[in-house]
Design a protein around this nucleic acid. Sequence first.
DNA 1: CACCAGGCCGTGC
DNA 2: GCACGGCATGGT
Length: 237
Amino acid sequence: MGGQTFSWSEEDDGLFCAVLNDRVYRIRSLEDAASDPYLRSYFDLDYDYEKAMHEIAAKDDILKAAVEKIGMLRLLKQDHFIATISFILSQNNNIKRIKGLYDRLCRKYGHEVEPGCFSFPTKDELKDVSIEDYRELGCGFRAPFLVDAVSKADMLDEIDVMDFDSAMDALMTIKGIGPKVASCILIFSYQKREGFPMDVWMKKVMSTYYPGKDKSYFAPYEALCQQYLFSWIRELS
DNA sequence: CACCAGGCCGTGC
DNA sequence: GCACGGCATGGT
């Protein structure tokens, strides 16, 4: 899933498994998700990604190359709280370690919805967890950020109705959330497709291939273009 | 043993 | 405003 989510694991039989929406989902492919209302929304199956792909590829030669190389990309619609905590954990970290932290949070503070399958903890389940507790799990310097995020979690539902800039500002009042993390949360949980996360890789892409331009060049597909360019440059490296 | 991982915070200019 | 060091942890 390209670092959008840390909820899924591949099991021995090849099925992909996640605890979401307070139950266990096991799927082999996206087609299995189509009949389930929650997954249908989660995987954004009613958005026309074919059309978006073609319009993006037609914009310039770089994007054309990226689309041809990467194929179809989707933007997930994840739970607000899970996405917020996940992307706070992601800063200056690698995917393998983020996934490990995610799983330990589930096992220690989540609830068991099926033998051996734990949900991500709710904000209430994390209400009394301390900085020291998070450090014990291996969260490192992100521990105080998590405490702050949990204390402000009630705000997350209000962000749905905000315009993009207000939503960015609201998220960035949480410690440990800067422009990059806030953009990711807005894209992968709030379906705000004008997000354009600038990490070290995207800064290279922009200075090399789009000097003088900014995210407005990619409207109305800022987030999708960013995902294509990011995936593309990572595969080239 | 250094250096890195899809950054952010605090400080100093 | 912008540049910079520091930051916990585990993997190369």
